[in-house]
């Protein structure tokens, strides 16, 4: 079996979750190499950013922490995963015609968030407390819900850009799968027990208030 240090077993972001002890990574030995390669790469800590500038990181890191509720360690390295993607120019294959391509759209929206912080609080975004940052982020979502513009851009399209990249990065990470009870890759093993309330022997039932909610 692949070695997992005791402190890393069954890890979830911020130790949150409802599936105690469940660890997708204990299944690595049952995955094909091509799949294991792309998934395990997400565990390697990026040592150097290639896309975001230092000033952009100061805004992007707290923004992404807020969007995904990552208020402590261990954190899924969302900023690093997005940085890699933007550096490679790996888009979703489209962009809204009223926004530039994704990389430029990220740079511009981070600059405007910083501008909002300066205008409202006379401090940089990174120097605000989380509640103040959240208020500025909430304002963009509010504009998106009312179909309004933010700094002249369609706020719905900006919100879509941020949440799409953030969620794609976060929910590609095995720790996020542990948190939600998802088994991850399933080749060549597949599933034997399908159906309502059916589980594989290595899956863990929901221990949350789930069933009673």
């Amino acid at each position: 079996m692949t070695y997992i240090p005791p402190s890393q077993r069954g890890l979830t972001p911020q130790h949150a979750g409802r599936f105690p002890g469940f660890d997708t990574l204990e299944q690595v030995k049952y995955w094909d190499h091509a799949t294991a390669g792309v998934v395990l790469e997400r565990l390697a800590v990026a040592t150097q950013l290639a896309f975001f500038t230092a000033a952009e990181v100061a805004v992007a890191r707290p923004l992404l922490d807020l969007l995904l509720g990552q208020d402590g360690e261990p954190r899924v390295p969302v900023l690093e995963l997005i940085d890699t993607r933007l550096a490679r120019g790996e888009t979703d294959g489209w962009h809204y015609d009223d926004l530039p391509e994704d990389g430029d759209a990220w740079r511009q929206t981070l600059a405007w968030l910083e501008e909002d912080a300066q205008t409202r609080h006379f401090r940089g975004f990174s120097h605000l407390v989380a509640a103040e940052q959240a208020e500025l982020v909430q304002q963009v979502q509010d504009l998106s819900k009312s179909g309004d513009k933010w700094h002249g851009w369609n706020a719905t399209h900006v919100w879509s850009l941020w949440t799409r990249y953030a969620c794609t990065a976060f929910y590609s990470h095995p720790w996020a799968w542990n948190e939600m009870g998802f088994g991850g890759p399933a080749y060549p093993r597949g599933y034997l027990n399908i159906g309502v309330n059916a589980r594989e022997k290595w899956e863990v039932p929901d221990h949350g208030e789930g069933a009673a909610r």
């Binding site: 972001p13 949150a16 969007l67 995904l68 969620c167 939600m180 009870g181």
Partner: peptide, 11 residues
């Protein structure tokens, strides 16, 4: 978004 998104996703 934020903690509400995470809690919903755990379900």
């Amino acid at each position: 978004w934020g903690p509400a998104l995470r809690e919903r996703m755990r379900d």
